[in-house]
Amino acid sequence: MSDEAILSSTISGQPISIRCEDGVVLGGHLWRAARSAPVGSVIINPATGVLARYYHRYAQFLARRGFDVLTYDYRGIGQSRPQQLRGCHYRWREWGERDFEAVLQFMVKHRRDGPLMVVGHSIGGFLPGLAASAGMIDRMLTVGAQYAWWGEYAPRRRLRLFVKWHIVMPTMTAFYGYFPGRRLGWLEDLPRGVANEWSFRGRRFESSHPKGERKEVLRRMAAVTAPILAVAVCDDELGTVPAVRRTLDYYTGAQRTAVLLTPSDFGRDTIGHFGLFHDSHTAGFWTDTLSWLQEERNPWPASSVNSGG
């Protein structure tokens, strides 16, 4: 098949189920590269309360360009939602320690060729460091990666966001036994534990863990050696530069580069926290990401704001 035919072909994701160590079953899709020898494997970690299907078009884009791609929903969300969400105590930390760990092991088992990479959106860029096997990751691309500490929300929106996520959300969660995000039109419904971790998160992520476990959390984050390219967008009210840097500060064992992009870089007026994964960015941001995923080359060197490691 010619390159032109591959790029115009329709690639469907194969439905998969992944069993976590504690017996929870996650739903997802595996998108096989449109060539016999893939250039690598990519796991896409969603943002909090965002269905995996939001990233399916980006997954298909990557599969057309030679990557095997895995998309999945965290426990409590979408295809991984239990029959009864009320009273479910799934937590953010389990999305990393159990869900991502199981997905990573699955991808290692089914990988064919090339490096193993992660594209993490929002909390999805922080969770890899909680997995025991995160040392198997070869490269990471994060977009707006942070864990929603209110003190680093964009100053112009901080009060509104504090009321929304740290007053309304815990109040609604206490009443319903889960957060009814879909009913409010804010995001997908969230398990009680996830919603409360977000609402009551302190300055330090590990503060939500028992004191005896906090050193292990930091050790796991530091054990990640995969180079990280962290993308921030100037009009992202959640993934601000300080919030993105805070996430990178946990990955002390990795070479870290942060870039700050603007809507005007892509001929837009706004992008925000979610816009870069919309398929209107196929010829722009999506194509740019191939430089990092294929060659470990930063496609936005002039936009670098910090680096480490």
Rank of each mutant, 00 (worst) to 15 (best):
Y58H: 14
L161F: 13
M140K: 04
E152K: 12
A283G: 08
Q294S: 14
L26E: 14
G202H: 12
L127D: 09
R201P: 07
R183M: 04
M1N: 11
V163A: 13
H29F: 14
T262E: 15
I6P: 03
F100L: 10
D138P: 06
G124L: 00
R268A: 06
V194W: 05
P15S: 13
Y147F: 13
R192Q: 12
G308E: 14
I271H: 00
S2Y: 04
R203Q: 15
T247K: 07
I77V: 10
I271W: 08
R19F: 07
P170Y: 01
L290W: 13
Q83D: 14
S291Y: 11
F100T: 02
R201H: 07
A132E: 13
R201T: 04
G144A: 07
H89W: 00
D73Y: 02
S122Q: 01
V118T: 05
S264E: 13
T171A: 09
R93P: 04
R32F: 06
R219K: 14
A33W: 15
W198Q: 06
F277V: 02
R57I: 09
A34L: 09
G212L: 07
R160N: 10
A302V: 12
Y250M: 10
P242D: 08
E197R: 06
Q84R: 06
V118L: 09
E97Q: 12
I228E: 09
W92H: 04
F106D: 00
L51H: 15
G27A: 08
D279P: 05
V118Q: 04
R53L: 14
A134K: 00
T173C: 00
Q83F: 12
F266Q: 07
D279F: 11
R157I: 04
C20N: 13
A33T: 10
W150F: 08
Y178R: 00
P115I: 01
D22A: 10
G239M: 01
A243T: 01
A145R: 06
G135T: 02
G239W: 00
T257Q: 13
E101D: 14
Y250F: 09
I16Q: 07
L218S: 09
P46S: 11
G28W: 11
V194R: 04
L187Y: 07
P115D: 01
A52T: 02
V233S: 01
E4W: 12
L184C: 08
R93M: 05
G27Q: 11
D138V: 02
Y147R: 07
G114Q: 05
L130W: 07
D68P: 10
D99R: 05
R220V: 14
D3F: 06
R112Q: 03
T48I: 04
G96N: 06
G13F: 04
A102M: 07
S264F: 02
H29D: 15
G177I: 05
L161Q: 15
R214C: 10
Y55E: 13
W150L: 01
R160L: 13
I18G: 03
L26P: 15
E4R: 15
